[in-house]
Simulated assay, not measured.
Amino acid sequence: MQEFREILVAITNAHTSKAELAQAITLAADNQAELTFVSIVQPAWFENPLLSRDDFQSFWDEHLLAIAQPAMDAGITVTTRQICGHPFHEVIRLVETEGYDLVVKLAEPSGVFNRRQLTGNDLNLLRRCPCPVWMMQDKDAEQPAQAPVILVALDTSTDTPEQIALNRKLLASADHLALQEKASLHVLHVWDLYGEDRLQGPFINMSREQVNELLKETESTNRDRINTLVTTNGIGDAAQCHLVRGRASHEIQKLAASLKTDLIIMGTAGRTGLAAFVVGNTAENVFAGVDCSILAIKPDGKKHQAVSNETDANK
Rank of each mutant, 00 (worst) to 15 (best):
S39D: 15
D197A: 09
Q32P: 10
I265Y: 05
I235M: 03
A44C: 08
L27R: 09
P43S: 01
T97P: 04
S249L: 04
A283P: 00
Q163Y: 03
S110G: 11
D175Q: 11
L215I: 11
L263Q: 06
K216T: 11
S308C: 07
P109A: 08
I164K: 10
M72A: 11
T77K: 14
T119G: 06
D312M: 00
R198I: 13
S258C: 09
K298M: 08
L185W: 01
T36E: 06
G289M: 03
V149D: 02
E34W: 03
L243C: 04
A283W: 00
S207T: 12
E47K: 13
Q2W: 15
Q2Y: 10
G246Q: 04
L214F: 09
L170R: 03
F59H: 13
A257G: 07
D300G: 13
D138V: 10
H86L: 04
G99S: 06
F277H: 12
A288E: 00
E20V: 15
L259H: 01
T79I: 14
L229I: 09
Q253S: 14
T158P: 03
E251T: 09
E96F: 01
H186F: 04
T97M: 12
P202G: 09
L102A: 06
I264C: 11
E284K: 03
A248K: 11
A19V: 10
F37Y: 02
V149P: 00
N48C: 13
D312I: 03
G301E: 08
L51E: 12
T272N: 00
V91T: 07
P148E: 06
D224T: 15
S293K: 07
Y194Q: 13
P130Q: 00
K315T: 10
I264W: 02
Q137V: 14
Q82Y: 11
T80P: 01
V187M: 04
R81D: 07
Q82M: 13
L255E: 04
E20H: 13
K216P: 03
A14E: 11
A172F: 12
Q57F: 14
E219F: 11
E162G: 12
K298S: 10
I265R: 03
N167W: 00
L154K: 07
V133K: 00
L214A: 06
S308F: 14
H242S: 01
V78A: 04
A14G: 05
C241H: 05
L263F: 08
R168C: 14
R208F: 15
T156E: 07
L243E: 00
K18H: 12
R93K: 15
G236Q: 05
K216S: 14
L8F: 05
K216I: 12
C292L: 02
N124V: 01
V244P: 10
E219L: 08
G289F: 00
W134A: 11
G201L: 07
F37G: 01
T16Q: 02
Q180G: 05
T77H: 15
V104C: 01
E62P: 10
